[in-house]
Amino acid sequence: MRVTEKGQVTIPKNVRSNLGIEPGSEVEFLLKGREAVLRRVEPAQALVERSVQEFTDHLNRHKGSMNLGGMGGDEFYRLLRD
């Protein structure tokens, strides 16, 4: 199977059929060492996974940047609950 200049390949019909891939389906590639695994992703699952990843990235960008003004963690959580 050849890869085009744009990095595209045609997924063989038997693979598409077995994975339930139809036009408009979401797929993803998972890297496992030096291999790539193709899997179909449910649209709702893809949205949730993308949202979780975006939120995790957001948290990581701000990690350690909150100034609690000397307030301890327990005090802060109490403040959030009240």
Rank of each mutant, 00 (worst) to 15 (best):
S51D: 12
T56G: 06
M66H: 09
L79Q: 13
E54K: 13
E75K: 11
A36N: 14
G69A: 11
L30T: 12
R61K: 15
E42S: 14
G69H: 12
V52P: 00
H62I: 02
M66D: 07
L80W: 03
G72C: 05
F55S: 12
Q8Y: 11
G33V: 03
E5T: 04
E22V: 01
E75W: 09
M71K: 14
R61T: 05
R16G: 00
L79W: 11
E26A: 04
G7A: 06
N18I: 00
V27F: 05
Q45P: 00
R78C: 04
L59H: 09
N18M: 07
E28Y: 06
P43D: 10
L38N: 10
M66R: 14
E35V: 00
G7V: 04
G73A: 09
L47A: 14
F29P: 00
M1A: 08
P43R: 13
L30M: 08
N18Y: 05
M1W: 07
N60L: 08
R81C: 04
K32E: 11
V27W: 09
E42T: 12
L38G: 04
E26Y: 11
N18Q: 15
G20T: 03
R39K: 15
F76D: 06
V3L: 11
H62P: 00
S17N: 14
H58I: 05
P23E: 10
M71E: 11
L79I: 07
F29L: 11
E5H: 01
V41K: 03
